[in-house]
Simulated assay, not measured.
Amino acid sequence: MKKPLAEFIGTFTLVLLGCGSAVIAGDAIGFTGISFAFGLALIGMAYSIGAVSGCHINPAVSLGAVAAGRMTIGEAIPYMIAQVAGAITGAFALWVIASGSAGFEGGMGANGWGEGYLGEYNMMSAFAFEVVATFLFMVVILGATGKGAPAAMAGLAIGLALVVIHLVGINVTGVSVNPARSIGPALFAGGSAIAQLWLFIVAPIIGAVAAGLLFKSGLLDADDA
């Protein structure tokens, strides 16, 4: 149970602190601060639970690792269950904290697109961003954790990649690249966040699996260079 527990705690932390930065402190820190909150939360977890589970804390990353041949689907399933459970629990903790404010209006840092959501980008833009961003994120993850890569730098490289992805994409979708991160807040936000949730499950999985298959092919894997 060590690995699923680590994934639960890691995803709980990412959602509570990442989405919490938007819900509780967004007006003060802006998009840049929110971007760094997500990235720094991931860096912290990478160096605390990475040695236990690899710190996927993202179902798309686990499926990308399966596609790359670095874990089996049987190993990935407990990871994904723990990740989604951690995200839901993290969102619940955030809701409990945020709802104690008189100014709380129910926003949970949920992902979305279209009229009334941040930059009001359309569905095609949202889908394209999530696929491409998750693909690039997975490339960084697989490259930084591959043989020959400096292991001590992996967590930093991956966390900073998540910061950059957020800096570019918050105004488009709020940035998912992680189905669990989207599922947790959507369940408490309700409405359009639930209706649009499918995109933030499908698109990140497509992007991560595509990156995994690219590494599996040997085209980017340092082992076959």
Rank of each mutant, 00 (worst) to 15 (best):
L63M: 14
V52Y: 12
T72P: 02
G54I: 01
M80T: 14
G69N: 02
M71P: 04
G50T: 05
R70N: 04
A51W: 10
I73C: 04
I73M: 10
G64S: 06
C55H: 06
L63N: 00
I49N: 06
G69P: 01
A76L: 15
G50W: 02
P78D: 07
G54R: 03
A65Q: 13
T72E: 15
Y79S: 07
A67M: 05
N58V: 09
M80Q: 14
A67Y: 00
R70E: 03
M71D: 05
N58L: 05
V66R: 03
T72M: 09
A51C: 12
C55S: 07
A51N: 09
I57S: 04
V52R: 13
A51G: 14
G69Q: 01
G69H: 05
L63R: 03
Y79H: 08
L63Q: 05
A60V: 04
G69S: 01
I81N: 12
N58E: 05
V66S: 04
A82Y: 13
S62P: 06
C55N: 10
I57L: 11
A65G: 15
A60K: 02
C55Q: 15
I81E: 12
E75V: 15
P78W: 10
V52C: 11
A65T: 08
Y79C: 06
A76M: 08
I77C: 09
G69I: 02
E75Q: 11
A60L: 10
M80F: 14
V52G: 09
P59V: 02
G54V: 05
V66Y: 07
I49S: 09
A67Q: 02
I73D: 12
A82S: 11
